[in-house]
Simulated scan of single mutants.
Amino acid sequence: MTLRRPAGSPGQRGEAGAATAELAVALPALVLVLAVALAAVDLGVAHVRCVDAARSAARALARGDDGAGALTEARRAAPSGSSVESALAGPRVTVVVTAPVPALLRPLGIAPPRAVAVARLESAP
């Protein structure tokens, strides 16, 4: 035996369009979470590219390759907008590559991806 409510009963009146309203609230939140997750993945990829760029430049400078060429190659390997710096201290060369934070993550105060590579000069005693 099933009980049926008469049309227009109080239980049915307030539910009309509820699924549409819930979807209208949930969908933008889902899109925002997805965008932040993709920006976080981009941040991780940028860090790996910074590490690769710093290592390759440090190796090239330690071998005695042309300094400008090594830094240009590091800028090509690093994410766009990155800064590449090198310093020579005694028998070691240090290369620092810093990339910008993705725009969506800047308001969160995320530290920029940064990599430091140190290599001993091959001509050093």
Rank of each mutant, 00 (worst) to 15 (best):
M1N: 01
T2N: 14
L3G: 04
G17W: 14
A18S: 11
L23V: 08
V25T: 12
V33S: 00
L34Y: 03
A35K: 04
V36Y: 11
V36C: 14
V36A: 15
V36N: 01
A39P: 07
A39E: 05
A40P: 05
D42P: 03
D42I: 00
D42K: 05
A46D: 10
A46P: 02
V48L: 08
R49P: 00
D52M: 03
A53S: 10
A57M: 12
A57V: 08
R59S: 02
A62T: 14
R63S: 08
G64S: 06
A68T: 15
A68K: 08
G69R: 15
G69P: 10
A70D: 12
L71C: 01
T72N: 15
A74N: 13
R75M: 09
A78Q: 08
S80G: 06
S80P: 05
S80F: 02
G81T: 10
G81W: 06
S82Y: 13
E85A: 15
S86W: 02
A87S: 15
A89D: 14
G90F: 02
P91H: 11
R92K: 08
V93D: 03
V95G: 13
V96K: 02
T98I: 15
A99Q: 01
A99T: 13
V101E: 09
A103T: 10
A103C: 05
L104M: 15
L104C: 14
L105N: 07
R106N: 01
P107T: 07
A111H: 12
P112G: 10
P112D: 07
E122H: 05
E122C: 09
S123F: 15
S123N: 03
S123D: 13
S123C: 05
P125V: 14
